[in-house]
Every structure is written in C-alpha cells, then in structure tokens.
Design a protein around this nucleic acid. Sequence first.
DNA 1: AATTTTGTTGTTACCGCTACCAAAACCGAG
DNA 2: CTCGGTTTTGGTAGCGGTAACAACAAAATT
Lengths: 346, 346
Amino acid sequence: MPKRLSGDGNPQTGSARMRDVAARAGVSTMTVSRALNEPGKVSEEMRERVLRAVREIGYLPNHLAGSLSSNRSTTIGLIVPSIDNSIYTQTVKGLSEVLKRSGFQLMIAESGYDPNEEEELITIFLSQRVSGLVLHSTEHTPQAAEKIRKSGIPVVENGNIPEEPLDMVVSFSNREASYAMTMHLGRLGYRKIAFASLYSVHNDRSQDRLQGYHAALNQLGLDPDPRIVLETERGLAAGAEVMARVVQSVPEVDALFCAGDVLAVGALFECQKRGWPVPGRIALASFDDVDLLRHVSPSVSTLRLPRYDIGERTARILLSRIIDGAEHLRGSVIDLKFELIQREST
Amino acid sequence: MPKRLSGDGNPQTGSARMRDVAARAGVSTMTVSRALNEPGKVSEEMRERVLRAVREIGYLPNHLAGSLSSNRSTTIGLIVPSIDNSIYTQTVKGLSEVLKRSGFQLMIAESGYDPNEEEELITIFLSQRVSGLVLHSTEHTPQAAEKIRKSGIPVVENGNIPEEPLDMVVSFSNREASYAMTMHLGRLGYRKIAFASLYSVHNDRSQDRLQGYHAALNQLGLDPDPRIVLETERGLAAGAEVMARVVQSVPEVDALFCAGDVLAVGALFECQKRGWPVPGRIALASFDDVDLLRHVSPSVSTLRLPRYDIGERTARILLSRIIDGAEHLRGSVIDLKFELIQREST
DNA sequence: AATTTTGTTGTTACCGCTACCAAAACCGAG
DNA sequence: CTCGGTTTTGGTAGCGGTAACAACAAAATT
C-alpha cells in the first residue's frame, strides 16, 4: 500500500503532484516540468495543455523537491546583528527588492553581535542549502570561515570593508567615513573634538570608526584625549548621557561626533534641554543620515551612507555569481562611497 | 554511471552525504539519521560513533532532503507591507527570537501594501512548503485565502483584528486604540480634534483607526468635520505638512491626533518651528510609542502597542500548531492590549 | 525454559522533482 | 522518398534523506 493515496479527484485533499498534472494533460512529468520551468523547450500546444491542467488541478510545484533534485536553491541567507536596528532595514529592502525580481527568497536571522551565534546560523543556513549568504558583520569565527569556504557558495559581507574578506564585499569604509567627518570638523576650526561610538567589542565597524577618528586627529595635529572618547550603548538616552557627561567633565570640548545609531539625536535633545547652543557651545555631528537629523533644529551634519545601494548591489553581485556563474567576481570588493552633509549643527 | 562521484576521501570536494557518514561509522543511514534527529532512540555507543564520524567527515545534513522526505519543514513565511517600516521590526524580532529557539527559520518578503503582490508571495511561500505563515495585512485576495485554506497550514494575521480572520490572529485592535486616544483627548477638554492617518486604501489598519476616531467623537458629542480629517503619506515631512495645513485652514483646532508612523514627530517639529506652543496652542497625540516621543520636548502622549509581544505570541501559537498539532487553537484570536501614555503634549 | 516484551538496528520504498540520455516526431535537402 | 539533423517528448535513475516495518538481541515475564 502506498504511503499516501493521492490521485483522488478531491481537490481539497493534500496537494497535487506533478504526476497528477502529467496524467491529466496526458504527458510525461518531464514535459510538465519543462513547460513550467523552461517554457521555451516545449511546443506551444503542450505548454497550453499543461498549463490548463495545472490550473484545473490547482497544482502548486514543490520547490523543495525541485531544489533537491536540481541541486539549486533560490534562497539567500542574511545574518544581521539585530533586526530591530533601523539602519539595516534599508539594506534589507534593497536586497529584498532585487532578489524578488529574480524569484529568490530571503531568509533572515540575527546573530546578536556574537560571532559564535553567527557561526551557528551560518551552519543552519548551509544546511538549508541557501545559494548565497549575506553577512553584515565582518568578524567571524575561523570555523565559520572554513565552513563557508568548504561549501563553495558565494558570500557578501556588507557592514564594513574588512582587511581579509571571506569572498565579496559591498560596503562603504567606516574608517574613511569617520575620518572624513572628523577632518571636516577640524577644518571648520573645532579643536577639542569628542567622539562617541557604540561598544567596539565584536564590532569592527565601531573599531574602524574610532581608527578613522584618530587618524584624522593626527592629521589635524590635534592631541587625542581619552577622556573625550566614549563608548556607549545604542539609543537616544545613551546619546543624551554622553553629551552631558562629556561637556561637564571636559568643558573645553567644542564638538561631539556621534558615530553610532541615533546617539546624535539624543545628544541634541540634551543640549536643548540644558540650553547649550548648538553649534555655539558645542558642535554636533552624526554618522548616519536618518531622516530625523534633517528635521530637527538645528539640523545635524552627518554622513549619508549608501544603505539601500548596498543591499541592491549585494543582491546583484550575488545573483551574478549564482545564476551566471560569474566566477571572475569572486573576491570583488565594491566600495560604495558615502557623502558628507554639512548642516546647521557644525 | 552515478551522477556524482562522492565518497572520494577528499573533504574539500562537495559535501558529504549521510551514507558517507554511515559507511565511516559502519552503520546504516537510518542509524545516522536517528543519532542526529532522535538521539534518544539510539544507544549511547552508536550515538558517539556516529557523531565522531560526522565530525571527522565534516558532514552537514541536507535539510532540504529531510524536509522533503519527512514532509515537514522548519520555515515560517512572513509577509509585511514594507520592511523598512520601523514599527514592524519589533514584531519581527519577537518572532525571530522565539522561532530560533525551536530551530525554525524565518523567510521574509514585502508586499508593498498590495494584496495581489501578497497573493503572489503567499503562493511562493506555499510552494517553498513553509510550515506556517504570518501576515501583517488583514486584507487578502479571495484566491489568497483559498490557497491558504487549501494548503492547511496555520496562519497568523497580526496587523489588526479583522472581522473574518483567515485562521489565527495576534494583534491589538486599531479601532479601540484610536477610540481610546480620541476619548482621552475629549476628556481632557479638547473640542476640535483633528485626525491624521496614513492612506487607508488597502490598509484596514488606517480604516479602523479612522473608525475609532469617529466613534469616539460621536460618544463625546462632537461633530465630525471632514476638513480636519487628513490622510497622508508616511514620514516626518508629511507630519509637518499636516500640522501646518490643519492649523492654518481651521484655526479653531485645538488638538491633532496623528494615527500613523512618526507623523506626530514631524508635526511637533513644525509647531516648534512656528512657535506654536504644545499643548497651549494645539495638543498633540501619537499612535505608536517610538522611543523618540518620550525624549522630545514636550514629550508626546501616545499609545504603547505590544509590538514585540505580538511577534512572540505569534511565534508561540504557530509553533503549538505546527509542533504539537494543537488543532484546538485553530481560529484563536488573541487581543493584546495597548496602553495609553499621557505625556506633556496633551 | 519458553514466551513475551522491549529496545536497537537494518531494509526497503518512497518524498516530488529534475538530469541525463534515448526515442520519436518533424523537416527541408538531395 | 529517404536521409541526416533538429526539435520535442519520454523513461529512468537518482537528489539525500525519512517512514514504516522487519529483524534480531537482550531483558522481563510466566
């Protein structure tokens, strides 16, 4: 007795299989398969006959079976540190829109800024036989790197431009962006530039931003001062706290560069609350061009980062590798440029 | 001749299959399968022998094959109107965290507020044999509903509480939330309460919010005035524009309820820019408790919506259905309550 | 000691589809 | 009308696993 008795005429029960369609259309399953996946390889008449049968039966292809058999999948795995971080969403959108057009699906998981967690997720994704991988972080365990290498699937890193990429990279340089903004502040005449970023453990983006800041200070001939370099957590409250702390502990500070999520907005609110004129008492610069920064008063100088483009280009290059087998793209590093936006706060 | 010649000792080439592990451990594939998936059903000795072989070969199970064979998958499909909308991210996080714990994966796609697009995505997800579906929208094409019903997989809607759910619902009531805030404004003594929401075509959340507003006006004995009911797009600029427009066209307005994304913040900035005291000249209320609203000055009254909880509960109830086969949960409607937060702006 | 129960491992037949190759149908040229 | 070449279609053997059941040994029962 068969495991399951399909083939009963009842369209309610279970889902039809390709052989049911084939039977109905009076052709072989191969013809059905071709009519659906390579319509060009089938005569017009057959195609219509098959499609009609598909419609009549309400057949839904089993993509799992197809992938297994053809050893191809249309799934891309994406690992971000944290889903609720608004800065990723633009990238995800760019990715998603391009992938969708080619019939690819996105699987998303969050690593919580932990390389071990990331490794585990990579393992799961490989096990799901994703055909490509997108990693926001550029810090990985050696085992993760090895697994990826061994799997042979294309990977894009896109949170930063690492020294030793796993494979392809689509990003801007956090270091350069940070350098550029710090130089900008220096050129505007600010001499005591404080720097606030997110915690840099397991976060090479933060580390690179700090490096860029220091490189610029050096270039500007300014002495670094550890008292005005702060690491904090994400969020408005953290930004406010940083502003208050730095101004009170080192009064000669004349600028604060917030190189992390919405810290600048929190910092600005704190100034407003305390009555510190911006940029009169202290100038303020931010790292990411969230909509908000343009609308607050004073509007905040910042860096416009190509978040959406990163997603788009990532998807494109990944698809080239997967669909066209463009092996010459292996190891490509695409450095998308950022833009410095001078506003009222500096 | 076999399609592929695995079994060569080279660990670089391709990926090992279960039979390779079996051969290495000197057992059958079933034992390997059991050792990995139902460790309890295998003797300790065997388990270790198998796990060692797995490690030595660097075997990675093929989840696709497993799903096909067992007719079970560990993938949940999620369709949101737009990924870059910050209000969904909390829900996604809740979902993701619970699912991950049970070894389930999340596939995310965006429908762009279009039911036809949604239907297409549903078809794709069903074709991928997801074992559950989460839909933010509660407006679907009849075909989409039919396909879902036919597939038999559990579904959760969670953007609103619809009149006729597809299956399960985990949400708060947009109508009640909107009603509550409008009543709140009325009780505080505001008599000419303007209402701004997002476009309501294909957006039953917006429609319900509008209804709640009208119901409250009615209850308060206030006459509705179409001049002060506005629909606009998302964003700070839109909020600013609404505020300017409504105050200038109908000066007797004494409150504005922004029932949509960050509109309130834009509206508040506009007041600050124009020098209109809030709530002195006009009171301001918002719909969603984004962090920002607590930190601006004046802080903005709003509704705290259980975004994260929705994700969490959604995942839980879905897993109950999938793993435990809890059929009694079919059709459950979970109404998670919101909270009204009175702040300085009203 | 014979019989039943329990626990562990193996055998076989698929899951639903596609790659590969063979067969058939078509088609204009000689 | 036949022939080689070019579509178009079909048969078959997997893809890499798991369900279901069979087989066997050890433990428990009578």
